[in-house]
Design a protein around this nucleic acid. Structure first.
Length: 224
DNA sequence: AGTTGATCATGA
DNA sequence: TCATGATCAACT
């Protein structure tokens, strides 16, 4: 890469840096950091998030923690339509399907990842070329008591299924705000999970995702 | 194989 | 039309 920002010192600097690019297109931001915009995202689905990481100075490569670990802040780009509604669900984190004893809501990955998020809404309409998609106003978010309760309830339900060996019974229809879906390179990827009667089975790796209804509520509270 | 960044594409 | 289930790329 020909460009990389130094990590922001504090949340104010991060937020300022993010809000400075509100109104720019992805093409304009990409030229600032000397990268080329793909004509579509069929083969580079995470391109937008990586562009923002580069511009904002996220410690790339760090895993299982926030993008700005020292600030306790996670970066999430979110594709929206003209009404500001999310066009996609939001990936939260990988779901561990074994050795889950002792994991409670208060110390789980989902809660940790979402403790504080820098949301960067971006025009995600597929009939607009990526280079022309405009960045909206980024903002910092922390779940309120109601939102945390909503996530916690779904998480606990999903984790109970996993713990009881019912992973194969879970579909993306479970969970009102937080869902569990496959998360892998392809359908051949397998990982260990708890099966019926406590046996070990092989299953498709899963990840936690926020439903659009949940992220829409977050966006609405800020922009309405 | 695990985990990050996500969007794609097909069935309902 | 839309969400679910599948998939793509980079890096560890």
């Amino acid at each position: 890469m020909l460009f990389s920002s130094s990590p922001p010192r504090d949340r104010e600097e991060l937020l300022e840096r993010a809000q400075q690019i509100a109104g720019l297109t992805l093409g304009e931001l990409a030229s600032m950091v000397n990268v080329k915009v793909p004509s579509n995202f069929k083969r580079e689905k995470g391109w937008t998030g990586q562009l923002l990481e580069l511009y904002l100075g996220a410690n790339a490569g760090s895993k299982s923690q926030q993008d700005f670990a020292s600030l306790g802040i996670e970066l999430k780009t979110i594709p929206i339509d003209l009404q500001g509604k999310p066009l996609e669900t939001t990936y939260v984190c990988y779901a561990h399907l074994t050795q889950i004893a002792g994991i409670e809501w208060h110390n789980c990955n989902v809660k940790n990842k979402l403790s504080q998020v820098l949301w960067v809404p971006i025009d995600g309409r597929r009939d607009v070329a990526p280079k022309d998609r405009m960045i909206a106003t980024p903002f910092l978010w922390t779940a309120n008591a109601q939102q945390e309760q909503q996530l916690r309830q779904d998480w606990e339900e999903l984790m109970e299924y996993i713990a009881l060996g019912k992973i194969e019974k879970i579909t993306a229809r479970h969970g009102q705000y937080l869902q569990l879906r496959p998360k892998a390179a392809d359908g051949k990827a397998l990982t260990d999970a708890i099966g019926p009667h406590g046996s070990v089975i092989q299953t498709r790796p899963r990840g936690f995702y926020l439903r659009k209804e949940f992220t829409h509520a977050i966006l609405s509270a800020v922009f309405n």
